[in-house]
Structures are given as structure tokens and as C-alpha cells.
Design a protein around this nucleic acid. Structure first.
Lengths: 244, 244
DNA sequence: ACCTGAACACCGTTCAAGT
DNA sequence: ACCTGAACACCGTTCAAGT
């Protein structure tokens, strides 16, 4: 056989190629990154093993050398997203502000990867980056004076809230996509119109409060709802924090 | 043709049959009931249009005369479960106790239909019975003195909490089923052992609090977690209730 | 060790055809 | 109006075979 073509320099007019590997070199990180890209661009329902394989120009069976199955892929994607969560230097004397900042930061990151919450609730995450966020919140609560036992409960409920809210938001994103819309404001307005029409058609004698206050029911959007619930939780935790 | 065999009485030794209808008469209620039965017995992942059709001894296409698709079926099943939620006569002077009772009642009903929360979060329920629960909580908050605008937020977050918690529980049920276990206690113990082993294997210098308090992290089960979060929310709402 | 094609046992939904 | 069989375009995972 003649020498490998990689040994001769490419002529300068030839378009640069990726390193000459006929078959794509797969690895776990590449698979996770591809999965996340599909999740972000087309949503949870579009993410399938076959779709990931297609994107990597291979068959679905090839993925199973690097990932045990779809469930593990979802966990890995979730953890990959958790890596984007920025954490401040813990300062227990400011635990409440820091917990609020943390929650808003998680909210922001989950907002940029709308459907990742569905991956989170579909499994029980134990990856390195989600542990990092756990250590942060748990340490903050304990150093602020809460007992480890109670801090476990508080952390657990706060996490559930963050994921649950993000999940709900992702359902709306999916519906928007399904309706062929692109602008969230447009979708949101259409949604409010629908709800309003529906509630106004209700028998007033059976649902007086809902009927009378449709406008209040739809007045606040996702952001305000998120922040209201967050403050409910933070206040509740504060009331339970020793010697504040 | 001879007279239909239904006109001659069956001999007493023949096993009784269902009324002789060669083809099953389908209707929406029957489909919903069948779907719920599958959901309860085998979980969310087992619930498919084809499976429901099979149970009713027909083809999947037959369902589409009574139900627009899987999404509507899930909504109908969710609403059917909401019908089981018992509501007390509203007494705004006892709003906090009644809201707590309500939350525990929802928790109980969702516990009996473990996977229904997944049907709820997968759509936006607007059925008659879920409206009934909405009217109850909303009316209670308003009559207790909260502004309609803020009551909307409080109701929304409480509902999210109830559904989110139930969803999380259903993930554990699914994992238990997948592991071939039947006894929740057995599963719970195995799960705790797993978590404990995993956390103990962590580098202590990076995750000191998680490492040191594994036992506290796993000390409380689903019920205690649910109630702790519920009290956090109720206390937060109470703090915002005018002239308590 | 890693990758592959083919196969298995499933999905939700549509549609033309029947009654 | 309701029901049906067949088809379409998908799933996740396994397995024997290749390199």
C-alpha cells in the first residue's frame, strides 16, 4: 500500500476538511451535545435516540456504546445544563438574598433550555453539576443555622419548585410550537384570549369567583408567578430559620 | 335467516355471557375509564391509544370518533380523577385549615392514581372537575380577604406544588415498577441505600455538607416532604393575607 | 473496543371503505 | 354517525456480524 494521504500536505486551493476520518468518531460528550441541541431547537418530543444518531450520521445502535439508553442520555443532558448555573461565593449571613439569586439564575438557565426540566423530572439526577448546586444550597442553609435535617427538606422543596415551574413553562413552549407560532407574546395573548372566552362561557352560579375575575386570573405572566412562588417559599424558610 | 339466537333462553349450564353485542358499543366515558385503569395498573408509559383499543377489543382508529387524540384523552382522565376530590363547605374564617385539608385531599387522590399528575403536567387542564377545585381554592382566598389578583397567584402556585409533587412521586413509582419491585418500602430502602453509597463515594472536599449529612438528606420520606413544603406555602400565604 | 444493518416489538394518527 | 383494516412515519433496544 502507498503512504497514507495524510502524510502529503494538502494543496492550498483545496477547501479545508475536518481531520480525515471516514467514520465519525463518537463519544459521550458529542452525543450529549447533539441531544441538547435537538432539545433546544425542537423540543422534548423531537429528542429521540434515532434523531440523535441521524444528526451524527450513524445508526441508533451506535449510541449504545457510549450511553446506556435514553434515560441516561436525559440525565447527562440535564447535568450538562446544570453546568451553566453560576454560583456566587457562599455568604451565609446573606442566605436569603443568595438563595433568591440562585433561584433566579436557575430560572434563567432553564429558560434558555426550555425543555430540560422534562428531562430532569423524568429521572433522578445525580450528575456532578447538579450535585454542585445541591452542595451550594444545602451548605448555605446549614451555615445560616438550620439543622441538617430541616435543611434537607427546604432544599428538596426549593428544587422541586424550580424544576416544576420550568416543566410547566416547557409545556407552553411545546404548545406554541405545535400551534406553529414563533413569538411568545403572540402565543401568550392567544392563550389568554382562549382562557377568557372559556371562563366567560361558564355557568356563573357554579363558578362565581372564577367567572367574575378572569382578568385577574390572567393578569400575571410566568415571570411574576415564578417570583411570587419563590418569595412564598423563601419567607416560609426564613420563618423557620433559627435566630434570624 | 333464522331468528337471532338471543331469542332463545340459554341453557342453565352455559356460562353467563355479557349481553350479546357482537361489536362493543364505544363511548367517551368507557374509553376514559379504560385509560385510567391502565394508568393505575401499569403506569403512564403503558398508556397508549393502541393499548386502550386493545383492551376494548377494537382497533386504535375506532377511538378517534370519541376523542380527538391522546392529549385530549389525558385531559379527560385527569378531570375524571379530579372528580374524586371531596371539597368541604367553604368557610373563609378557617381558610388556612381548609386549604390544608384540601391539599391533603388532593395528595390522597393523586396518591391513589399515581401517574395522573403526568397527564396533568403534559397538558393544561380545563375540565369541569378541575374547575370545581379551582373555584373552591380561589373563592376561599378571596372571601378570606385576599385581592383577586394576588389570590390568582397564590392558587396557581399551590396547584403547581400539588401537581409537581405528585409527578415526582410517580417517577419513583415508575422506577419501582421498572425494577420489578412491588413493595414501596422495599424500593424506598433500596433507593436510600443507593443514594447513601453514592454520596459517601463523593470527594469530601468538594461536597462537604452533602457528604457529612447523607443520613439527614434521606431521613424524611415523601409524606414529610410534602407536608413541609405545604406548610411553607401556607405560611407564606398567611403572611400576605390582609388583616389576619 | 467500537461501530453497523437488520430486526423486533412497539408508537399516534390518517384515510378510504364499510355499515 | 360510528367503526374498521391497512398504511404511514415514526419509536427504543437488541443482536449477530463486522473492523
Amino acid at each position: 500500500m502507498s503512504k497514507d494521504s495524510r502524510d502529503v500536505p494538502a494543496p492550498p486551493w483545496r477547501k479545508p476538511r475536518r481531520p480525515a476520518q471516514v467514520k465519525r468518531q463518537l463519544n459521550q460528550e458529542l452525543i450529549v451535545e447533539t441531544g441538547l441541541a435537538i432539545l433546544d431547537a425542537e423540543g422534548f418530543d423531537a429528542l429521540s435516540m434515532r434523531r440523535v444518531a441521524q444528526e451524527l450520521e450513524t445508526g441508533p445502535a451506535s449510541l449504545y456504546a457510549h450511553v446506556s439508553g435514553k434515560e441516561e442520555l436525559l440525565e447527562l443532558i440535564y447535568d450538562r445544563v446544570c453546568a451553566e448555573i453560576r454560583l456566587p461565593e457562599p455568604d451565609p449571613s446573606r442566605w436569603k438574598e443568595q438563595l433568591r439569586e440562585y433561584a433566579l439564575e436557575v430560572h434563567r438557565v432553564f429558560g434558555e433550555h426550555a425543555d430540560v426540566a422534562r428531562a430532569a423530572l423524568a429521572s433522578i439526577p445525580t450528575g456532578e453539576h447538579s450535585l454542585r448546586t445541591g452542595e451550594f444550597t444545602y451548605g448555605l442553609l446549614i451555615e445560616a443555622g438550620m439543622s441538617p435535617r430541616e435543611a434537607s427538606l427546604a432544599m428538596d422543596r426549593l428544587t422541586l419548585y424550580l424544576v416544576g415551574d420550568a416543566y410547566e413553562a416547557s409545556v407552553h413552549w411545546a404548545r406554541m410550537r405545535a400551534a406553529g407560532m414563533r413569538d411568545p407574546r403572540e402565543y401568550f395573548e392567544a392563550f389568554i384570549r382562549q382562557i377568557t372566552t372559556y371562563y366567560r362561557a361558564l355557568p356563573r352560579e357554579r363558578f362565581p369567583h372564577l367567572y367574575d375575575h378572569v382578568d385577574d386570573l390572567t393578569a400575571d405572566g410566568g415571570e411574576a408567578r415564578f417570583e411570587y412562588g419563590l418569595e412564598l417559599l423563601l419567607d416560609g424558610i426564613e420563618a423557620r430559620m433559627p435566630r434570624t
